[in-house]
C-alpha cells in the first residue's frame, strides 16, 4: 500500500505548490491536470474497453466552446455550464459513434477520425456562434459570486475536478462496468456468454470518456481564455490517446504520468519546433514495442487499476 501512504504528502504538496512557484508553472500544472482528465477518460475507453478514438479533440472542443458560450452569454453559471456542456458533448458523441461501436474496433477509429475533422470544420464555419477562425475570447469565470481571475483559483478548481475524476474512474474500474469493459476488451465472446451486453458497455465506455474530455475542455477554455478551432485538430486527438499509451494503458497513475510527460516535453525542447512531436511520436512507438504497460509499468502494483 505504498500508494496510499504517499497520498497525504502528495495532496499537501499539490495544495501548497501554487504559493511556491510562479504563475507560469501554475499554468503548466493546471494544464497538466486538464490533460490528465481527458487521459483518464481515454483510459476507460482504450485501456479498459480496448477501443480507439481519434476524435476526442472534438469532444474537448465542444466542451470548451459550450462552456464558454453558456457562461459568456449569461445563460448558466460556470459550474453548471461545465456540466451542461459535458452532457451535450457526450450526447453528440454517443449519437455519432453508436453505429461504429457495434462494429470491429477499426471502425470506431475511422468514424471518430471523420467526426473530429467535421467538428473542427464546423467550428471554423459557424462564425455567428464560435467566431470562426478569429477565435473566441472569454472573460474570467465566476463561481458563487467569486471571480476566478488569477491562475491559482483555476488551479484549485482543476485539481479538485481531477481528484474527483480519478476517484470516479477508479470506482468504475473496480466495479461492474470496469470488469465488463475488460472482459469485452480481451474476449467479447466470453463476455457475451456471461450476460454482458457488448454494445451497452462499449457505449458506456465511450460516453464516459467523452464526458471527461468535455469537462476538461470547459476548464481548458477558462485556463487559456482564448479558444480557436485551430487548436482542436487530429493532432490533439492523437496526443490524448498518446498520453494514455505513454503513461500506461489500464493503469491508475498512467493517464496522469502521460499528461505530465506531454506537458513537460515542449518545455524541455523549447525553441526546437519539431522535437517534441518527434519525441512524443517515438515514445508512442517505443512504448508499444518495449513498454506496453507504459510509464506506470515501472510503478508498484498497488498503483494499478487492474
Amino acid at each position: 500500500m505504498t500508494g496510499r501512504r504517499l497520498l497525504l504528502p502528495l495532496a499537501a504538496a499539490l495544495l501548497a505548490l501554487p504559493w511556491g512557484v510562479g504563475g507560469y508553472v501554475t499554468y503548466l500544472l493546471t494544464l497538466t491536470f486538464i490533460y490528465a482528465l481527458v487521459a483518464i477518460g481515454m483510459n476507460l475507453l482504450t485501456g479498459l474497453a480496448g477501443q480507439i478514438s481519434l476524435g476526442h479533440a472534438a469532444f474537448f472542443a465542444i466542451g470548451a466552446y459550450a462552456t464558454g458560450l453558456l457562461t459568456q452569454r449569461g445563460l448558466l453559471p460556470f459550474p453548471l455550464a461545465l456540466l451542461a456542456a459535458a452532457l451535450l458533448s457526450t450526447g453528440i458523441g454517443a449519437l455519432a459513434a453508436l453505429p461504429a461501436l457495434r462494429l470491429r474496433n477499426l471502425y470506431l477509429a475511422i468514424a471518430t477520425l471523420g467526426f473530429g475533422t467535421v467538428v473542427q470544420k464546423a467550428l471554423f464555419e459557424w462564425r455567428g456562434l464560435t467566431g470562426g477562425g478569429a477565435g473566441l475570447e472569454l472573460a474570467p469565470p465566476h463561481i458563487a459570486g467569486l471571480v476566478l481571475n488569477n491562475g491559482r483559483a483555476l488551479y484549485y478548481v482543476a485539481l479538485a475536478v481531477l481528484a474527483l475524476g480519478l476517484w470516479c474512474a477508479g470506482n468504475v474500474a473496480r466495479m461492474r462496468t470496469g470488469r465488463a469493459m475488460l472482459m469485452l476488451r480481451d474476449s467479447e465472446i466470453a463476455a457475451g456468454t456471461l450476460g454482458i451486453g457488448i454494445a451497452r458497455f462499449r457505449v458506456a465506455a465511450f460516453a464516459l470518456s467523452t464526458f471527461y474530455a468535455a469537462i476538461a475542455g470547459g476548464l481548458y477554455a477558462y485556463l487559456v481564455r482564448y479558444i480557436n478551432p485551430e487548436s482542436f485538430g487530429l493532432g490533439l486527438s492523437i496526443s490524448f490517446l498518446g498520453m494514455v499509451v505513454v503513461g500506461g494503458l489500464g493503469s491508475r497513475a498512467g493517464p496522469v504520468l502521460g499528461a505530465v510527460f506531454f506537458v513537460l516535453l515542449p518545455e524541455a525542447f523549447r525553441g526546437i519546433k519539431d522535437a517534441p512531436g518527434l519525441v512524443f511520436g517515438l515514445a508512442l512507438v517505443l512504448a508499444m514495442i518495449f513498454l506496453p504497460r507504459g510509464l506506470a509499468g515501472i510503478a508498484p502494483r498497488s498503483w494499478r487499476l487492474t
Binding site: 474496433n105 477499426l106 519539431d274 511520436g281 517515438l282 508512442l284 508499444m288 506496453p292
Partner: peptide, 22 residues
C-alpha cells in the same frame, strides 16, 4: 492486440510529420 499496432502507426504518423518538418 491489433490495438498496439494501430497505436504504433499513430505514433509513426507524428514521427514522420516531425521529421519532415525538420
Amino acid at each position: 492486440p491489433v490495438l498496439s499496432a494501430v497505436i504504433a502507426t499513430l505514433g509513426l504518423n507524428i514521427v514522420l510529420n516531425s521529421i519532415a518538418g525538420m
